[in-house]
Design a protein around this nucleic acid. Sequence first.
DNA 1: AGACCTGGGACACAAAACGTCCATCAATAG
DNA 2: CTATTGATGGACGTTTTGTGTCCCAGGTCT
Lengths: 340, 340
Amino acid sequence: MREILDIQKQLLPDLLDIMKKRYSILHHILVSGVVGRRTLASSLDMTERVLRGEVDFLKELGLLESDAAGMRITESGRQLLEDMLPIIKIAFGLTDLEESIAKAYGLSQVIVVPGDSDTSDFTKKELGRAGAAALRKYVAKDDIIAVTGGSTMAQIANNLAISSSMKGSWFVPARGGLGESVDMQANTIASIMAKKTGGKYRLLHVPDHLGEEAYQSLIQDPQIQEVVDAVRSCRIVVHGIGDAMVMARRRKVDAETTRSLQADGALAEAFGYYFDPQGNVVHKMPTVGLRLEDLQRIEVVIGVAGGKSKGEAIASVLRHGQENVLVTDEAAALEIMKHV
Amino acid sequence: MREILDIQKQLLPDLLDIMKKRYSILHHILVSGVVGRRTLASSLDMTERVLRGEVDFLKELGLLESDAAGMRITESGRQLLEDMLPIIKIAFGLTDLEESIAKAYGLSQVIVVPGDSDTSDFTKKELGRAGAAALRKYVAKDDIIAVTGGSTMAQIANNLAISSSMKGSWFVPARGGLGESVDMQANTIASIMAKKTGGKYRLLHVPDHLGEEAYQSLIQDPQIQEVVDAVRSCRIVVHGIGDAMVMARRRKVDAETTRSLQADGALAEAFGYYFDPQGNVVHKMPTVGLRLEDLQRIEVVIGVAGGKSKGEAIASVLRHGQENVLVTDEAAALEIMKHV
DNA sequence: AGACCTGGGACACAAAACGTCCATCAATAG
DNA sequence: CTATTGATGGACGTTTTGTGTCCCAGGTCT
């Protein structure tokens, strides 16, 4: 049942919008009894003309009837509304979730895919697909796109395809080495994405666990500097969001830092920064690349993460307030809504 | 699964057409490997421009990719096609059935609703809804519409609603008394339809089992004659189709006639005429109204009947060759296709 | 009885779809 | 190595569709 809607959404992206529109017209008429066109239009926030088009259409289908007193729902229409209820619940639960989250955190777009990435590989793939679609939507000609590492980002890379709009784009890692395993780190993801889309890429080879002195001389290096400049002038960032402790463990952060993270209440991690539940940055990984202050200037910040267990972490990063677009799954979205 | 498609079809009648179009484009590309726009257009029987529109759209969604060599399906696209298979089977089994029947019997439109009216009341209602929709589609201003009796016709009447296009229409019974019970007979149906749509009606009060002499004087009656003239000049006929023996029993036809019907191989019944499997008329009920020769002149003949048990009967009436539109259900449609 | 609201017709204007042609590029056959 | 074929993508004028805005005649409710 849910799959069929999801498949249709792939083939007709605005199917649900149309269904929702027509459903709410019918529903409104049902609860109003008899109602006039203009009244209905203002109450549904539509122009009179476009409502009229829909009404004529629904009348054609025999779901609606009208006489001089106004419009009324027919028996077929009432029956249809009843039959639609379960579909509406499923279909618009998600869009409602999307809208609620977007409103609560001031995002320009939220995409929620059905399922739970924690328990379903299919959902994880869906998340990647949706993330790739979001990136494709926002990218413009010759953009610089900064990306992070992680399994979700790898899924996005998987779902990118050659595309003329990304041909001139540059993919760069948002920040230098963060201690991830090689196939999940930002450098790898950036190069895969570039290969998949036909774009170009530059990498940031910053070894982990560098001494302060070596580090300072490294970031003076003109080649490194060039990439860092590119990163900071990017127009789009796509990044994953992780649970702070999980990330710390995966990156083999030393015991002292871990304790300090716990003491500071670190909950979430994104591009090497650790956030507490209120969205404050409590720690950052020692490497080069994107800084927090760069985010304000960056036009499109796309966060992609899912799974019930990550919901709270996502919420805390959203609370930090630099995101524009969120791609997540249903389970995480429900968790996010618990923390508004 | 099937219900959801059916509900959507009510709210977006051309949903399936669009899905079919996009599916066949993707499918064609999948089997072709790489293929050019013009080649594909001619092979799918589309103009190049409209195909291009679809292709651009599918490319936008990442289901398709193209380079100078031609168009190729992406992994997401291939996956989608795979996921779609069950939906396609269900959705286009019916449209394929519709097209096959229309072609086999030279009908201008066939509508197949899912299910079996014999076993499901829901399907019976659907049949009524579809029949009403078909009538609504073909009716024009101030038409004369001749209707017959029967439970299916009663369902159609149930699903008609007030409509400006039928306000000036006349509903008349196709033929006089045919021995049906009062709530199923053509007179009743015609008056219900008129009341439901806001149209007008004339009735044919011809008592059953009339002596020859009384009969002759009755049909000379100016008032009766007037209605009969109206019936014969109608532009639309909507009629049910029944099993010959079932109808004979229901109408309490005398034993001798029943034997004669059996001897002549009567299989089907429609508006008082009995048909053998080859579509020949082998008997007619003694009453006034529509004659077979009138059918040729009538612009729209709509037959509505469903249920697996009626499939063969429907096929024999279709074979008679005067139908334009058939509304039936899946079970009957499958039976009909066995008798081409 | 009168104010109000209804659906439906009309029309100009904007936007999308479409048919058609062409430039440019890649692959392949000769 | 070159010519040819068939590919995509851009461009542009035309047609169709969708939309905003009025208005009117006729019911309806107060």
